[in-house]
Amino acid sequence: MGPKTEELISVLEQLATLLENDGATHWSLWMRKAQARLLDSDYSGITYLLSAYGGMGSFNDLVLGQSYDGGVFSWKPGHVELNQRFDKLRCYAAQLADAIKRSQG
C-alpha cells in the first residue's frame, strides 16, 4: 500500500467521523465501505469512492450542519466552519483517489 492510499484511508476516517457526528449515516457508511476495501488492498475502493461524486444528490451536493425541529429549518452552531472542514476533506479525498487511479494505469 502506497503513501497516497494510506493518506486516503486517513482522510476517509476523518470524513466518516465528521459525517457520523452530523447524522449523515448514508454517506458515512459509503466512506467506511471505501475505506474497508482499501484496507483490504482492494482498489475497487477507489472506483467506489469516486462514484459518490457527481450527479444530482451526490456527495458533492451534501451540506452539513442543518437541522429540522418541528418542521422548521435551522443551521446548527458552527455550521460554516463545519462545512469548510468537510469541503476540504471531501475535495482532498477526490484528489487522492484520482491520483491513485491515474497511477494504477
Score class of each variant (00 low, 15 high):
Ala24Glu: 15
Leu39Trp: 02
Thr25Gly: 03
Val80Glu: 13
Ile46Leu: 14
Tyr43Val: 12
His79Met: 03
His79Trp: 09
Val63Leu: 07
Ser44Tyr: 00
Thr17Trp: 10
Asn60Val: 01
Gln35Met: 08
Trp30Val: 11
Leu89Met: 09
Gln95His: 10
Phe73Trp: 10
Gln104Met: 14
Trp75Ala: 03
Ala16Lys: 09
Gln35Thr: 01
Lys33Met: 05
Ser103Arg: 13
Phe86Thr: 01
Tyr92Val: 00
Met1Ile: 15
Ser28Cys: 04
Thr47Ile: 15
Tyr92Glu: 10
Ser10Met: 02
Gln95Leu: 07
Thr5Lys: 11
Asn83Gln: 11
Thr47Gln: 09
Asn60Arg: 02
Gly70Gln: 06
Tyr68Met: 13
Asp61Ala: 14
Gly78Pro: 04
Gly78Asn: 10
Gly71Pro: 09
Tyr43Arg: 11
Asn60Cys: 04
Pro77Cys: 00
Leu38Met: 06
Glu13Cys: 03
Trp27Asn: 01
Glu6Met: 12
Phe59Ile: 04
Glu81Thr: 11
Gln14Arg: 14
Leu29Cys: 04
Gln95Phe: 07
Phe59Glu: 07
Thr25Val: 15
Val72Asp: 08
Glu7Trp: 04
Gly78Glu: 06
Ser28Met: 06
Glu81Asn: 11
Ser103Cys: 05
Ala97Trp: 08
Thr17Phe: 10
Met1Pro: 13
Leu12Val: 10
Leu8Val: 10
Gln66Cys: 04
Trp27Met: 02
Ser74Glu: 11
Tyr48Ser: 01
Gly54Glu: 11
Lys33Thr: 12
Leu15Ala: 10
Leu15Met: 14
Asp42Gly: 03
Leu89Asn: 05
Ala36Trp: 01
Asp42Thr: 03
Gly55Phe: 09
Ala94Arg: 14
Phe86Cys: 01
Gly65Ala: 05
Lys33Gly: 01
Asn21Trp: 07
Lys4Thr: 12
Gly2Asp: 15
Arg32Ser: 08
Gln104Ser: 13
Tyr68Val: 13
His26Met: 13
Gly105Val: 12
Asp69His: 05
Arg37Pro: 00
Val72Arg: 04
Gly71Val: 08
Gly55Met: 09
Gly23Tyr: 02
Gly45Cys: 05
Ala16Arg: 08
Gln104Asp: 08
Leu50Phe: 03
Ser51Lys: 03
Leu29Thr: 08
Thr25Glu: 15
Gly78Leu: 04
Tyr68Thr: 12
Pro3Tyr: 12
Gln66Glu: 15
Asp87Pro: 00
Ile46Gly: 00
Ser28Trp: 02
Gly55Ser: 07
Tyr68Cys: 05
Asp61Glu: 15
Ala34Lys: 01
